[in-house]
Design a protein around this nucleic acid. Structure first.
Length: 311
RNA sequence: CGCAGUGCAACGC
């Protein structure tokens, strides 16, 4: 089971399958965990129909599908853009007499938000309580992130304060999500304050934390502060990545500080990072908005020369 | 008793 799990997470699903198929049932029969692990692996690797077939095979062989299996199936269907089938699996689970657990409801809520079904996502957060569970830090993270992505970042503050009142302890990811929500609702100062708070609580800010605030500052043209924060992150050993550089390039580019945008791009490449299509698009957008069309065309050519395919 | 399923940041219109 451990081997199948690790192989499928390393995108070696075929090797995982051959272990499963090569099992000599006289020596070692697959159990429910074996099926769960492989169903999850197939789903993760985009082979959701094969995962579903294996689920049917599991049930046929007399094993009971539990919430773990249904979680993997639901996520698998949503991840390949088949929300209807995801919902179908949820209903099928209820019909089969299996009750959802908190992990399943959190996962389902996340999928539903990511499929753009905001009201259904909100309803699922309530459903967690209806089903007798106490929402955990994942539940709140999914809720806030879902709302932020759907354009309701303004609700971040209220939910965050409710969490604090109720004594929830935020971990790094929860902080990152809340910080992003504050940034996207015009409360960048509050976001920055939370980043500082993380440090005092010895919760280590990551590149995502810095990235969120740097992006927030960049989007409201507080570029010098964004750049200072970027320097700070590097100085304390948080490795910056292409996303952060792209945020900065976009910010500087949008206000016409194109020379600086180029310098940041150069620094990025010198530090061993390769600009991706987002990075180039930021630069191209800045150049076209500044009516530097010839320069934009040169840039477009450089992009292709550096093996980056335009989208 | 051990092995399986949940949350995070960047671009255009």
């Amino acid at each position: 089971n451990v081997m199948i799990n690790r192989l499928s997470k390393a995108r070696k699903i075929d090797e995982a399958l051959s272990i499963f198929e090569g099992l000599d049932h006289k020596v070692c029969s697959p159990n429910a965990v074996t099926f769960c692990t492989l169903i999850d692996g197939l789903g993760r690797n985009g082979r959701i129909d094969d995962a579903y077939k294996l689920y049917e095979k599991m049930v046929d062989s007399g094993l009971i599908a539990n919430a773990v299996v249904f979680t993997s199936l639901i996520k698998g269907f949503f991840n390949v853009g088949r929300p209807k089938d995801g919902h179908k699996v949820y209903k099928e689970m209820l019909r089969s007499g299996c009750f959802p657990d908190l992990t399943l409801l959190n996962t389902y809520m996340d999928c539903v938000f990511k499929a753009g079904e905001v009201d259904k996502g909100r309803a699922l957060f309530e459903e967690i309580k209806t089903q007798g569970f106490v929402p955990d830090i994942h539940s709140f993270s999914v809720l806030i992130n879902g709302l932020v992505k759907a354009g309701f970042a303004r609700e971040t503050s209220q939910i965050y304060h409710k969490m604090k009142e109720q004594g929830y302890v935020l971990d790094t990811r929860a902080y990152n999500i809340v910080i992003d929500g504050f940034c996207k609702s015009g409360k960048v100062n509050k976001a920055y304050q939370l980043l500082e708070e993380m440090k005092t609580k010895e919760i280590v800010p990551t590149v995502v934390t810095y990235g969120a605030v740097i992006d927030g500052l960049s989007k409201i043209d507080r570029l010098d502060e964004a750049y200072m924060l970027f320097e700070e992150a590097k100085s304390i050993g948080v490795p910056m990545n292409v996303m952060v550089y792209s945020s900065l390039i976009d910010g500087f580019g949008k206000v016409g500080r194109i020379d600086e945008a180029y310098l940041i791009m150069e620094e990025m490449m010198q530090s061993g990072l390769t600009p991706n299509v987002y990075t180039w698009n930021c630069l191209l957008n800045a150049l076209t908005k500044a009516e530097e069309i010839n320069e934009a065309l040169v840039c477009f050519q450089s992009m292709k020369d550096l093996k980056c395919t335009p989208n």
